[in-house]
């Protein structure tokens, strides 16, 4: 019983973390995007426009929750949650402290890679249930993209598991040494790029390409259900940044105590900002470029990284 209650509590904590992160993240993204485009971004509501997202959220909650007549109603209504819940669950296996994660299982890294993948189903079915050509095309594109980029992402995380000798995220962080950073630099790059593609953000946002597909798989969604899709996207960014900072960069680069925690938060924010930066700087890719990039560039890069880690580990054994 207590295990279930703890699980529910951590799930609630993860959902609130995503909500807060989305509130700040949307504001930060609009500010950064504004600066990149030589604008100011939001600045009317509150100091530096900080309350802008809050008022937008209120607006979204009060808006009518429209269900299209042709839609498959129960599936249409349920899908935002099927997209959000797997993404939120990724947050419980992230090692927030050395050797510790809220849900500290022996296969935490596999959990982090496998369970958020379920949101593919939500996206695909949201597109289908809308009974809308744009939404269906968006859903199919998103699914193809997410499945393809799962491979390099898994391979890049695998080189960390090899170094730590464990699939547990807590152990990966506990075993982290500074020389992992230069050794897994390529892996981190692969992880970073494929994480952007996993959450369907620009320059990989073909699934919601507004110039061709209106809004892709969530074209027909409005109000709070639309907001849940957006929350899932920000949740994906937060989870990917936290995991990247906690494992590839060893939390606060191996520092302990308060400076380590602060550095961990700063590194997470840095990775998230880099994702925003990429979205507003690079032009959107074509579908064929997207697939070519995943299969012919990122996957070989991740494999070479894995090989390099293996050779380094073997060399270490031979030399010592």
């Amino acid at each position: 019983m207590s295990a279930l209650l703890t699980g529910a509590a951590w799930g609630l904590a993860a959902a609130s973390l995503i909500a807060v992160a989305a509130l700040i993240g949307v504001w930060w993204e609009r500010k950064v995007a504004g600066r990149i485009q030589m604008r100011f971004g939001p600045q009317e509501a509150g100091p530096a426009g900080l309350l802008q997202t809050l008022s937008d959220t209120l607006k979204l909650m009060l808006k009518e929750d429209i269900t299209p007549t042709a839609a498959d109603v129960p599936v249409f209504r349920a899908m935002p949650f099927l997209v959000f819940v797997p993404v939120a669950s990724a947050l419980v296996v992230i090692p927030y402290a050395s050797g510790w994660a809220p849900f500290n299982i022996a296969t935490g890294a596999v959990f982090f890679l496998a369970v958020p993948g379920l949101s593919v189903l939500g996206i695909l079915l949201a597109g289908w249930a809308s009974q809308n050509t744009y939404a269906s095309i968006g859903g199919v594109r998103a699914a193809a993209q997410m499945i393809s980029y799962e491979l390099p992402r898994t391979l890049s995380v695998l080189s960390l598991c090899l170094l730590a000798g464990s699939l547990s995220t807590g152990t990966i962080r506990a075993e982290w040494r500074w020389w992992w950073v230069p050794l897994t630099a390529v892996g981190f790059l692969v992880y970073f790029i494929s994480s952007i593609a996993e959450v369907n953000r620009g320059p990989f946002d073909l699934a919601e390409a507004e110039s061709e597909l209106v809004a892709g798989y969530f074209t027909d969604y409005s109000g709070i259900r639309w907001a849940i899709f957006m929350m899932a996207e920000y949740g994906g960014v937060v989870a990917a940044s936290l995991f990247g900072a906690a494992t590839f960069l060893g939390g606060g680069l191996g520092l302990s105590g308060v400076p380590g925690a602060l550095l961990f938060v700063a590194l997470t924010a840095l990775i998230a900002t880099a994702m925003i930066w990429a979205k507003w700087t690079f032009p959107r890719m074509r579908a064929d470029q997207l697939m070519t990039f995943a299969w012919k560039v990122l996957t070989p890069m991740a494999l070479v990284q894995l090989l390099a880690v293996g050779i380094a580990l073997a060399a270490r054994v031979v030399l010592s």
Partner: peptide, 27 residues
């Protein structure tokens, strides 16, 4: 986890893809 990774995340998506390619009926 392997079942979730391979089946729910992979094979089921393949099934949905096949349905979308083959059946285009209204729900």
């Amino acid at each position: 986890l392997a079942e979730v990774f391979v089946y729910a995340g992979g094979v089921l998506v393949l099934v949905l893809f096949a349905i979308m390619l083959v059946h285009r009926g209204e729900p």
